[in-house]
Design a protein around this nucleic acid. Structure first.
Length: 300
DNA sequence: CCTTTCTCAGTTCGGGGTCC
DNA sequence: GGACCCCGAACTGAGAAAGG
């Protein structure tokens, strides 16, 4: 079971640490365990409970009122709120709680409800990415296990696969050909998968090679597919790769294609980008680009 | 109806301890 | 040694209740 410092709780829940202490003192609302030197630490259940309290509090419930509610009642109210409004923070906190308790049903239903309410794209942009951002905060401070991240990203990927499936073969007359891949050792495929979905939803043809693609296999795929665009993402800082060489290789390997690069490692890299290369700084920019090449596209 | 008082919730301050 | 944590007390602001 993971443990969290009061600072971790503050970072994830948005509740200031002194406020947490005063809640504890005045309302006995949470009673974290203490180290031998009297420092508070919180477990998964505590964090989930605090996230729920924070949601109710933001929806106007008084803290004194919440302190008198049973955990079951709080759970019921949260489920109601997640289902009946589209304030994204509620969904983000809900996903966090579901992840920490490995509650697959809750995780699925929050995502599904959101997709029904605001569509797949907005769910990814406004709920999933902010959620992953918060996971990243906990990840950096070492407060969650890899299993939590795998659990969450597994379900999110599953949702994306289903959504992608629904668009297979639906090509528009203005379709462009895309080749999507991740360089060797780059593991974070969610962004690429989302790009796959965005493009297919707009009627483009996508050859999705996924992660761990060696350059020679990549070259084999090019001849058959003849892409108009090649898109890749590089985010992981630990990858020992010559980025300039990778960029040069990509620019020369299929000269008919434009190269689209995204991910922090390209965005902040000190590289000479050939003319055919375009760096996409944010996912919003990719969506804008995808819209600009997609005639008559309207979301959802 | 307006002012005063009370209640609630969050913030600030100061002093001391713990951790890295 | 500096960042972080703990605690209690006092302060602040908003809103509700009381009362003249």
């Amino acid at each position: 079971m993971a443990t969290f410092s009061i600072k971790d709780i503050e970072a994830v829940s948005g509740i200031r640490s002194h406020t947490l202490r005063i809640w504890e003192q005045r309302y006995g609302i949470i009673s974290p365990k203490r180290t031998d030197s009297n420092i508070r630490y919180y477990d998964d259940d505590d964090l989930k409970y605090i996230l729920n309290i924070s949601i109710l509090n933001k929806h106007g419930y008084k803290i004194s009122e919440i302190s008198r509610m049973s955990k079951e009642h709080i759970g019921e109210l949260i489920l109601k709120l997640s289902g009946h409004n589209n304030i994204y923070d509620t969904q983000v906190k809900g996903l966090m709680g579901a992840m920490l308790s490995f509650d697959e049903f809750a995780f699925h239903s929050i995502l599904t409800t959101s997709v029904i309410q605001i569509g797949m794209e907005q769910t990814i942009m406004r709920v999933v990415f902010p959620f992953l951002n918060e996971v990243g905060v906990l990840w950096q401070v070492g407060s969650i296990h890899p299993s939590h991240e795998h659990f969450a990203s597994g379900i999110i990927k599953q949702k994306l696969y289903v959504a992608i499936d629904g668009n297979i073969g639906r090509h528009s007359e203005y379709k462009k050909r895309f080749l999507l891949f991740l360089p060797e050792n780059e593991q974070h495929s969610l962004g690429l998968l989302f790009a796959n979905y965005l493009l297919r939803a707009r009627g483009h043809e996508v050859l999705y090679l996924g992660q761990e693609v060696p350059m020679r296999d990549f070259k084999d795929a090019l001849g058959g597919h003849k892409p108009d665009y090649i898109f890749t993402i590089l985010t992981a800082s630990h990858i020992n790769i010559d980025k300039q060489e990778l960029v040069n290789n990509l620019a020369s390997v299929w000269s008919d294609a434009k190269i689209l690069l995204s991910g922090i490692q390209f965005v902040k890299a000190d590289i000479d980008f050939p003319e055919s290369v375009r760096v996409i700084k944010k996912m919003e920019d990719f969506i804008q680009f995808a819209n600009s090449i997609s005639h008559n596209y309207s979301q959802n």
